[in-house]
């Protein structure tokens, strides 16, 4: 069950999207998120959804696989909807004791849900089509100006890519520890939410210990392979803008234009 979480994972395939320059994908995703917040009405969301669907089709990543990524954030999604539904003032449509649902509330809750879903699908599509190393390279090159402000850009990017690499390993580890504890009578499946959360606490200690041990081992292995920060490092896959990246920028610009136009509708 815990291994079903797919958010932040790379999905190996050979599509235009996979081959696109990570810088384009990173800034494209950023632009897409900004657009989602610029949207004012349902036309805008429709445009974004259509574009996203087209890009997903292009990426060759199975839709079901992407949707699985939503599982991890379902609680957050529910909270947002609830808050917007019950706490927005306006013309009431439904009233019972202290619960009051307004027309504006429904609109806002629906819009928020759609916005969040589009946002998560869009950004997870980026991680599905970009290997962590490419992501690191892209981020590093986009953030390079910050180096002047003594921000350790390379180190931050490296940390991020290692974190992504270890997500499946730590999930597997959690699964193992859970099974080991279940074999000795631990119960993770019955009881209310609070009881279940409490049952998770004994998982954390062994998980943390093993994570630290792994970190120590990995650091040693990296040092043994002469890793000494970003200085003097060359790239196996250096980033070069190609024609398709130009096309991608054009598509992005068009998308931005469409979203701006929908604001006027």
């Amino acid at each position: 069950m815990i291994r079903d979480i797919t958010i932040g994972q790379y999905y190996p395939s050979d599509s235009v999207l996979h081959r696109l320059d990570p810088r384009v994908k990173l800034s494209g995703t950023f632009l897409y998120i900004v657009c989602l917040f610029l949207v004012k009405n349902w036309w805008g969301y429709l445009a974004a959804a259509v574009c996203l669907a087209a890009v997903i089709k292009l990426s060759k990543v199975p839709f079901g696989y992407i949707v699985k990524g939503l599982k991890a954030v379902i609680i957050l999604l529910l909270f947002t909807v609830m808050f917007n539904l019950f706490l927005t003032s306006g013309t009431p449509v439904f009233e019972w004791k202290f619960i009051r649902v307004t027309k504006e509330g429904i609109d806002l809750a629906a819009a928020m849900a759609v916005r969040l879903i589009l946002l998560i699908l869009g950004s997870s599509l980026m991680t599905f089509t970009t290997t962590p190393n490419q992501l690191t390279d892209g981020l590093e090159s986009l953030l390079r100006p910050l180096n002047k402000l003594h921000v350790p850009v390379h180190e931050v990017a490296m940390m991020m890519s290692i974190a992504l690499r270890f997500i499946p390993i730590l999930l597997e580890e959690t699964d193992k520890i859970m099974k080991a504890q279940q074999a000795r009578g631990a119960d993770f499946e019955t009881g209310g939410l609070i009881q279940r959360a409490k049952a998770m606490v004994p998982l954390l200690v062994p998980l943390f210990i093993s994570a630290f041990r792994r970190a120590g081992d990995l650091a040693m292995a990296m040092e043994a392979r002469c890793y000494h920060g970003g200085k003097g490092r060359t790239k196996m896959k250096p980033l070069h803008y190609k024609k398709r990246d130009g096309v991608a920028w054009l598509v992005l610009a068009m998308f931005l234009a469409v979203v701006v136009v929908t604001r006027k509708l």
């Binding site: 790379y10 392979r225 490092r233």
Partner: peptide, 19 residues
């Protein structure tokens, strides 16, 4: 598991020479 740093085999093999 604790000495492979990349998520693609070839990128991991390239890590040493990159350094």
């Amino acid at each position: 598991d604790n000495q492979i740093i990349a998520t693609v085999v070839e990128e991991d093999v390239g890590f040493g020479p990159e350094n």
